[in-house]
Design a protein around this nucleic acid. Sequence first.
DNA 1: AGCTGTGAAAGAATTCACAGCA
DNA 2: TGCTGTGAATTCTTTCACAGCT
Lengths: 231, 231
Amino acid sequence: MTSLDSPPQAVPGDTGAAGKQIPPAAVARLTIYLRALNSLLAEGIERVSSESLAEASGVSSSTLRKDLSHVGSYGTRGVGYEVQYLSRHIAAALGLTHDWKVAIVGAGNLGKALARYGGFESRGFDVVAIFDADQMVVGNEVGWLRVSDVADLETVLERTGANMVVLALPAAVAQSVCDRVVAAGVHSILSFAPVMLQVPEDVNLRKVDMATELQILAYHAQRAQTPGQPN
Amino acid sequence: MTSLDSPPQAVPGDTGAAGKQIPPAAVARLTIYLRALNSLLAEGIERVSSESLAEASGVSSSTLRKDLSHVGSYGTRGVGYEVQYLSRHIAAALGLTHDWKVAIVGAGNLGKALARYGGFESRGFDVVAIFDADQMVVGNEVGWLRVSDVADLETVLERTGANMVVLALPAAVAQSVCDRVVAAGVHSILSFAPVMLQVPEDVNLRKVDMATELQILAYHAQRAQTPGQPN
DNA sequence: AGCTGTGAAAGAATTCACAGCA
DNA sequence: TGCTGTGAATTCTTTCACAGCT
């Protein structure tokens, strides 16, 4: 499995079996295992089996083992995984070894909620700036930060060295701000704006959409209610 | 395609080709088409081709056509789709014909942001209650609502007829509140708490996790940075 | 004996390519 | 002619089942 589409020579400065790309579905779950591992760690548990880590993460044990196999072989047959060791290797595979600097654009309710959300710092994400267009809001304190004027977006992104941006702003202005962020050289964007944003290929855009999530729930709820299909 | 695992008799009170279950991946995208259609509608555009609706939604046209085929045949060959007509049928397929009543548990930054988020009402979701455990917060105004005491969860859920719950609370209390919500008869839950929640089979739980999203971005950003794999 | 790691099988989702209708 | 709707081909994901270490 080590080499399928690349020559059968060992990878030089290799940390484990990495280097090969991990399937998207697996990447998404690895973040969940990581969280589960860290909470085991907090409880002082040192070893875990694929079976119980899978249960704690809400997946099947075969899915978990297959996912981990993309990262490397960090378990011991007959025994299980060492929690801290595995956690470190997953973090490395996900690129969480150094901190990422996150700027939030939009200091409305959502932007503020995100800026104050403790979950980021603890997971290797530093919120380094928050912007708003409203002059009434610019200069206000949010968490440890002061709200910058979105007019200074480029300058502040550069100065703070932000390499990720979270868009927490109205749909109407999302595309234009997004364009500026991209032009400023940021390649990783997480958008909460309920619109399809257009970005160049080399920019990674992810979307979180609360209305969509509720609509998906609605679909399933409706299905459950309908009398038909007794199967 | 009409009937594969059910007898070949026509569905009785059928609105279109519905009745059959729609694949999860398609359901998620249908909500996006619906949004795109509604924004076309707002612009006064009456007809659209699969090609341009797909572009506006960020998917390929074949994916779009396949997805729509699960809902029914509402296009005209050689012409395209009538925007309003298609929008109605997708909404019907998703169960968005009647309003859903949403209660939010947790009136922290995130809970407040959600309660005030305009996007819900306009999409058929009514926020009917918001809860918090903190007595300093109970009674406060948030949007059009007053914060209820989470101690009264069961009573208020019943009184307001809430059939969906959004959990916007700390990981530590998420499971116990979730259990109470389930016991109160709610089958659709959207959680923002960064933990794996355990729910019975017949309850639909979806998760939104901002830290996970950033971690996925980090993975891709790291890959893009590494010099290796010239392919 | 027990649990991981992984090929091989099964199942979903996506893309292709074209028949069928306006 | 042009665009939808859909079988067939392809690719991606999950599950199975067991060989391989400890």
